[in-house]
Write a protein that binds this DNA or RNA. Structure first.
Length: 106
DNA sequence: GCCATGGCTAGTA
DNA sequence: GCCATGGCTAGTA
């Protein structure tokens, strides 16, 4: 039996990512208590109950690619660009510079 | 049995 | 671009 992660915690962590920054599915999985649960995090993003409050568009793949988005990748890219993130061919530019990892655990 | 991942490999320029 | 993995979830018994 492996430690499973809480959906609420995943949303709580995602909410901490500030405008102009991004984080990754695996970073959130790790902060939520299971570093290997990246795919589960993606699934939670897919059923995000509060798209405005919870900025799931700021969550991308660990290799710097944008990853998926419920209402279309283009929309995710536009949202990120409107927040100052540069994206070329689906790849986040200056990935390290925008990467947010300082999640607060309560 | 699915998948909004991740990481490794092959194959081109 | 492929496949192994982890964690859901729908749908049957």
């Amino acid at each position: 039996m492996v430690k499973s992660i809480s959906k609420d915690k995943v949303y709580e962590l995602t909410r901490q990512i500030p405008r102009g920054m991004i984080s990754t599915y695996s970073a959130i999985a790790k902060a939520a208590g299971n570093p290997k649960a990246a795919r589960a995090v993606g699934k939670f993003m897919n059923v995000n109950p509060k798209p405005i409050i919870i900025p799931c568009h700021r969550v991308v793949k660990a290799n710097g690619h944008v990853g998926g988005f419920k209402s279309g990748i283009d929309k995710k890219i536009r949202l990120l660009e409107s927040e100052g993130i540069k994206i070329i061919n689906g790849w986040i530019q200056d990935f390290d510079k925008h990467l947010f990892t300082k999640f607060k655990l309560e």
